[in-house]
């Protein structure tokens, strides 16, 4: 037991939690923007899978992580266009359309993988700061600093991007005309429309941002894990959607949820690896992250109402 409470173990657990949270956070921030505009996208997991495969395959072909991430973004963008067309312009029911996107992503990513790759082969994982080509040397001393090093510097660039996107998303939503339009069309599209705000255009852009981030989240996942296989995400996209709800559509709370989920997972794995949790309890322990995160966020955020027009298609008459 005492072993768990040594500083280095605590720090390692936290560092694991931060890394683990990154794909959840990226996907959930994108979904936050989409939902704030009134559009629920249950297809996040499918977009992530396609982004994950796209990123992975690009790294196999080119060796470039940057290109891998960009391909993930591009795939997210492309699917976002389809999803926006169906839900915003054809007024399709959002729940079932999202499930359709998910099933497409699940099946098509696997098909592409079978056809183009076949046997899963590891790729070079996303490098942490100290292993960045060229500039890694600068960061090496930082990583070696006690506590602060592993917590703040032993990460890859996507981790920093994900966490920087939290204030950026808040800024976008709260301090820009676009964000104001997003919040308005998610709450009362009739009012926004009466003032000449294009509901369709605003939702289209919000969906595209959301799906692009989902694609990036998927690519980040496969590049972090350095592998792709069938259903690599294992439901991360769905948990990300749940985090948006339980995080009450606020980027900071969504981040708190992603971190909490990561922390409980990391703690559970570590406790098991140190025999603090007995073997027989492993099934129950496996459920702990979801349960604890949901409970915590429900207690924190249950009083906050979601966007009033969420899942409601808009048309003038």
């Amino acid at each position: 037991m005492s072993q768990f409470f040594t500083v280095s173990v605590l720090v390692a657990t936290l560092a694991t939690a931060i890394k683990f949270a990154v794909p959840y956070l990226l996907a959930a921030l994108g979904e936050t923007i989409g939902q704030r505009s009134g559009v629920l996208n249950l297809g996040v997991d499918g977009i992530m899978l396609l982004g994950a495969f796209g990123g992975y395959y690009t790294v196999i072909q080119t060796g470039s992580h940057l290109q891998g991430i960009l391909v993930g973004l591009g795939i997210g963008l492309a699917i976002g266009i389809v999803y926006a067309y169906v839900t915003v312009f054809l007024h399709a029911q959002q729940g079932i359309s999202g499930i359709g996107i998910f099933l497409f992503g699940l099946g098509f990513s696997d098909l592409l993988f079978q056809e183009l790759v076949g046997t899963p082969k590891p790729i070079r994982p996303l490098p942490t700061l100290d292993k960045l080509p060229g500039v890694g040397g600068i960061f090496e001393p930082l990583v070696d600093i006690d506590i602060v090093g592993p917590l703040l510097f032993d990460h890859n660039l996507m981790t920093y991007m994900a966490f920087l996107l939290v204030p950026a998303t808040t800024w976008l939503l709260m301090k820009t005309t676009f964000g104001m339009n997003v919040r308005a069309v998610g709450e009362n599209p009739q009012a926004a429309d009466s003032l000449g705000v294009s509901v369709a255009k605003t939702r289209l852009i919000a969906i595209l941002i959301g799906s692009s981030l989902a694609g990036i989240a998927g690519a980040t996942l496969s590049l972090q894990l350095a592998i792709f296989q069938h259903n690599l995400t294992n439901g991360i996209g769905f948990i990300a959607v749940a985090l948006v709800y339980f995080g009450a559509w606020r980027p900071r709370w969504v981040m708190a949820g992603a971190l909490l989920y990561g922390l409980v997972t990391a703690t559970r794995i570590r406790w098991q690896s140190l025999d603090i949790i007995p073997q027989g309890a492993s099934d129950i322990a496996a459920m702990a992250p979801a349960i604890i995160t949901i409970l915590a966020l429900v207690l924190l955020a249950s009083r906050v109402r979601g966007p009033a027009a969420l899942t409601r298609p808009f048309s003038r008459h």
Binding site: R183, A184, N188, Q190, A191, L195, A308
Partner: peptide
Amino acid sequence: FMLVPTLTVAEN
């Protein structure tokens, strides 16, 4: 009213 309840007066 064509107002967005969660937005401020100025935002509306």
